[in-house]
Measured scan of single mutants.
Amino acid sequence: KAKLLVLLYAFVATDADTICIGYHANNSTDTVDTILEKNVAVTHSVNLLEDSHNGKLCKLKGIAPLQLGKCNITGWLLGNPECDSLLPARSWSYIVETPNSENGACYPGDLIDYEELREQLSSVSSLERFEIFPKESSWPNHTFNGVTVSCSHRGKSSFYRNLLWLTKKGDSYPKLTNSYVNNKGKEVLVLWGVHHPSSSDEQQSLYSNGNAYVSVASSNYNRRFTPEIAARPKVRDQHGRMNYYWTLLEPGDTIIFEATGNLIAPWYAFALSRGFESGIITSNASMHECNTKCQTPQGAINSNLPFQNIHPVTIGECPKYVRSTKLRMVTGLRNIPSIQYRGLFGAIAGFIEGGWTGMIDGWYGYHHQNEQGSGYAADQKSTQNAINGITNKVNSVIEKMNTQFTAVGKEFNNLEKRMENLNKKVDDGFLDIWTYNAELLVLLENERTLDFHDLNVKNLYEKVKSQLKNNAKEIGNGCFEFYHKCDNECMESVRNGTYDYPKYSEESKLNR
């Protein structure tokens, strides 16, 4: 008799109507990190870190770059004969040098303040090359056809396309004075040089004057150069050297050249137009028929994500570079809930034993079982409120962090190594801060989002509990077992918050 009662009780308990509160689960393989956990499985997430590029040089917003090819900045601007293909260059979106560009200054020497000139050019998007001192009329008392084997072109001695090597005419090199007034309405880049012979005999042979000088002056520039005559090792078949100089001439300003020898005179100059998204990159990537809004030396990035880990040097509207390998923000729920887990921000989770793959029309909802059958029903209101809140948060985070910009490298010469090392340390410090901030932001927001979901499920549970009161009992896994019969209409009233407690209280009292 006792065995019969136990079996009867078990049958009745199993047959009781139930309603459970749960949440969506799926077959997603997404994982995120939080402050407290690593690799948390979630139903949905968004990636904030771009880690792919196309490996190509592309047009930037429809404008092609200027590819210097086998030449570098120095060779292009001075007019190395091997860089003749660059003479027609007028406009570009950015400038590309190759790491091993070999054609710079063909006659050995240095372009002074080269690093600063590169910085200036990094904001130039177009130029006009014009004859600042016409070759045939500007130097009537001097020979202007100086050439050298060091600047050979097609097997013949030649010289820079933008400079003139002035030497004596006959047996004399009379003092020369020439000036140019900038009437271009924009900055003009003027380049010139000073020749330093290897011996007094060479000085006399070329310029006749043993104590020659070169003077260059404008409103913002004033220097006097004296040739340094000295024996030097042979470089590119030359014992002599040429140093090259430049200045930016403001609109309306005048530049005056005065010399008694050794002047490498300007022939062509450049009127410059600035462009905020221009820059110089060093890259071996090849040019393709493609378009982008962000270019790196590795390749083009076409992404609206706020961060990238491809390269710190970028041109155009680019994500911020960070050292992170993963920045994924959760938008959905835990896919593998932890039992009795309390989140960092106070939300209680884990009283549900598992997510439901059968509930596909919402994030949170119900599963019921009664004599009429069983089924899932999503709670659309709480789901939609959660979707709206999380979507707004993700968009806000992306908008705040998605300050796209150009980031170019800084140039230092060989004598500025300590400054370069200090600059690298400062840049590394800023990069570490950006990386830390980005990672911390994602970790915190992921923790908040998961706790937010847990709290929403808990609130749904409490909503049902407050309606049923003692007409049902909690069975410990997020479910309630009714003390009365609850048909589909009754189940719907529980879900929509209109459950009639008094209607079922007498039946429940008897069954309790």
Rank of each mutant, 00 (worst) to 15 (best):
E128P: 06
L66R: 05
F225L: 11
I19F: 04
S158G: 15
L206F: 06
N209M: 13
P81H: 15
R241N: 03
S45I: 06
M242T: 08
G75L: 07
D15L: 12
L272P: 00
V181D: 10
T143V: 00
H153K: 10
S45R: 01
P233R: 13
I264D: 11
Y213C: 12
E128A: 06
K59D: 09
F257Q: 03
H153P: 05
L7H: 04
Y207A: 01
N182W: 08
F225M: 14
F159N: 05
G279Y: 10
V194D: 05
S273R: 10
P266G: 00
S45P: 04
L57I: 14
E131I: 09
L249H: 00
W246Y: 10
P140V: 10
S208Q: 00
I35H: 00
R118F: 12
N54M: 09
G261M: 06
G193W: 04
S278N: 15
P65T: 02
P88Q: 03
V235H: 07
A13F: 12
Y23G: 00
A269F: 00
E116D: 11
K175V: 12
R161V: 03
T282V: 15
L48I: 13
N145I: 05
I21N: 11
E119F: 08
R118Q: 05
R224F: 14
I21G: 01
S150N: 09
E50K: 03
N262E: 12
G22S: 15
K3L: 12
S91N: 06
G170S: 15
N26V: 01
S158T: 11
G279Q: 07
T254K: 10
L166S: 00
T167D: 08
T167A: 02
E102A: 10
A105N: 08
F276E: 07
T98K: 06
D113L: 12
S218F: 06
S157P: 14
W92A: 00
P108N: 02
A217S: 11
A271R: 10
I63D: 09
A269M: 09
S45A: 10
A265M: 09
L249Q: 03
K168D: 00
K70I: 13
S122G: 15
Y207W: 06
N103Y: 12
S122W: 02
R90P: 02
S123N: 05
C20K: 11
E202P: 00
Y94G: 08
S137W: 10
Y9N: 06
C58F: 05
E202L: 08
E97V: 12
E50Y: 11
I19S: 09
S158V: 01
I73D: 00
P140G: 12
N39K: 14
C71P: 03
L60P: 05
V42C: 10
P197D: 08
L48P: 13
S28N: 10
V190R: 05
N72C: 10
K1C: 12
V124S: 12
A10C: 12
N141E: 10
W76M: 07
P88M: 09
V190C: 11
W139L: 07
L8S: 04
N182G: 04
